[in-house]
Design a protein around this nucleic acid. Structure first.
Length: 267
DNA sequence: AGCACA
C-alpha cells in the first residue's frame, strides 16, 4: 500500500515540484501568468532554479500544501533514515539490531497508536511526548487501556523508573554523543554523565550515565531498544551498553512534569 | 561490578 503511494510519484521531489507547478499554472489566471516570469517559464517547460521563491499574487491560495513542504518532506525523511522510510518498524530495527534480534518488546506504549519507539530522527522529536496523553504508560492507572492500534503493552517491571542507568559508555564519550543515541526516543529528556574513579588503581575511569525520560514506559522502550548497543558497530570488542532502570535515590527521578506520571511504578 | 543530579 505504501508502495502504491510512493509509486504515484509523491516520493520523487522533482516530480513533486513539477506537479505543483502544473497545478499552480492551472490556477493562475492568464493575466497573472503573464505578469509572472517564473510561471511563464514553467509553462514553457523550462527548468526553474528556484521555483518555490517566485512571487505570487496576493490572493494566491494559501491553503494548498506548500510545495516546499511537500517536496522537502519525503526526501528529507529518506535521507535521514538512509533508506526508504516506508515503515517505521523497519527503520527502528535497522538501527538497533539488538531490538531486532530479541524482538521482545513490541511496544511499551506511550505514543501514538502503533508508534511509540519511533526514532523520528529529527529535531525535537522526543519532546512531543510530553504533552501527548501517555496512554497506558508508566505507572498510570490506565495501564493496558486499549488505544488506537490495539497494541497491548507488556507490564512494566515493578522497579521501573523514568530514569535509566547506563554502563558501558567509553570514557572518551561525551555527553553530546550519548545524547545522539537517546534523543530520538520519545519521551527523552536529559542525559547526565558521571565519571567514576576506577576501583583498582591503574584502571581506566568508568563513565556512568543517567538518562531521564518523561515516564517509565518510555524509558523501558529505550532500554529494550538500546540494550547491548555497540558503540563501534564494526568493532568486535566494542563496548556494549548495559541499561537498567536507575535506582531511586531522590525526588528528581521520581515524578515527571506530568504531575504524578512517571517515576516508580506503583500498584 | 559500578547509581548522580536536586
Amino acid at each position: 500500500m505504501a508502495d502504491a503511494y510512493w509509486r504515484q510519484g509523491y516520493g520523487d521531489p522533482r516530480q513533486q515540484q513539477q506537479q505543483q507547478q502544473q497545478q499552480q499554472q492551472q490556477m493562475l489566471p492568464p493575466s497573472a501568468r503573464a505578469l509572472n516570469p517564473a510561471a511563464a517559464a514553467a509553462a514553457a517547460g523550462q527548468q526553474l532554479q528556484q521555483p518555490l521563491k517566485r512571487p505570487r499574487p496576493a490572493d494566491y491560495p494559501t491553503d494548498l500544501p506548500g510545495a516546499h513542504e511537500m517536496a522537502g518532506y519525503y526526501p528529507r525523511e529518506e535521507d535521514r533514515a538512509g533508506y526508504a522510510a516506508v515503515r517505521e518498524t523497519q527503520a527502528l530495527n535497522a538501527s538497533y539490531e539488538r531490538f531486532l534480534r530479541t524482538g521482545q518488546i513490541q511496544s511499551y506504549g506511550a505514543g501514538p497508536a502503533g508508534g511509540s519507539i519511533r526514532p523520528t530522527a529529527g529535531a525535537n522529536a522526543g519532546y512531543q511526548a510530553d504533552d501527548r496523553p501517555v496512554v497506558a504508560a508508566g505507572g498510570m492507572d490506565g495501564r493496558n487501556a486499549g488505544f488506537g492500534g490495539g497494541i497491548s503493552e507488556p507490564p512494566l517491571p515493578p522497579d521501573a523508573s523514568n530514569t535509566l542507568f547506563i554502563e558501558g559508555i567509553p570514557t572518551d564519550c561525551e555527553r553530546r554523543e550519548v545524547s545522539h543515541i537517546f534523543r530520538p526516543f520519545v519521551g527523552f529528556k536529559e542525559v547526565r554523565l558521571v565519571t567514576k574513579d576506577p576501583r583498582h588503581p591503574g584502571g581506566d575511569p568508568i563513565v556512568l550515565c543517567f538518562v531521564d525520560f518523561a515516564n517509565a514506559a518510555q524509558a523501558a522502550v529505550s532500554m529494550e531498544a538500546l540494550q547491548g548497543y555497540k558503540f563501534d558497530e564494526h568493532d568486535r570488542n566494542s563496548p556494549h551498553l548495559r541499561l537498567q532502570f536507575a535506582r531511586f535515590t531522590g525526588p528528581r527521578g521520581q515524578s515527571g512534569p506530568g504531575g504524578g506520571g512517571g517515576g516508580r511504578v506503583r500498584r
